[in-house]
């Protein structure tokens, strides 16, 4: 029984890692902030979900249900905050792209400061 659970955990955690790697590559490669937001929010959230899902059985076996519930709660919290924060960063990036005159050097390479 534990063998099946272990295999299940390894497969899911591996998938999660894969998504994280994709997210990170997206962060490095994509040209402008709006595109990078996609990479970060989508890939990393799914990666985290898979990770949590993979670890829940281990937690249930090891320490009873409370640990598992905490992990899921953490995942939900991350969903909530990353969704809202990416919305805000999107607004800021959008406004910056709008107001930035073409002559200004493309500062989008290394993240956007909250425009005053």
């Amino acid at each position: 029984m534990t063998l099946v659970l272990d295999i299940f955990t390894v497969v899911l955690v591996a998938a999660g890692l894969l998504f994280f790697i994709v997210g990170t590559v997206g962060l490095l490669r994509l040209p402008d902030p709006l595109a990078r937001l996609h990479a970060l929010t989508k890939a990393d959230n799914i990666g985290l979900g898979l990770l949590v899902l993979g670890l829940v059985p281990q937690a249930v076996v090891a320490g009873g249900g409370l640990e598992a519930v905490k992990m899921v709660a953490i995942w939900l919290l991350v969903q909530l905050s990353s969704g809202a924060v990416s919305q805000l960063m999107g607004d800021v990036a959008y406004h910056a792209a709008m107001t930035a005159d073409p002559a200004a050097p493309d500062r989008s390479a290394h993240g956007e400061e909250p425009a005053p």
């Binding site: 919290l77 909530l80 905050s81 969704g83 809202a84 924060v85 919305q87 805000l88 607004d91 909250p114 425009a115 005053p116």
Partner: peptide, 19 residues
């Protein structure tokens, strides 16, 4: 936060602050 609060921030605050 200099800019007028946007919907997302408002929603995040309403959910997150009590927790």
């Amino acid at each position: 936060w200099p800019a007028p609060p946007s919907g997302a921030l408002d929603f995040l605050a309403r959910v997150l602050v009590p927790i």
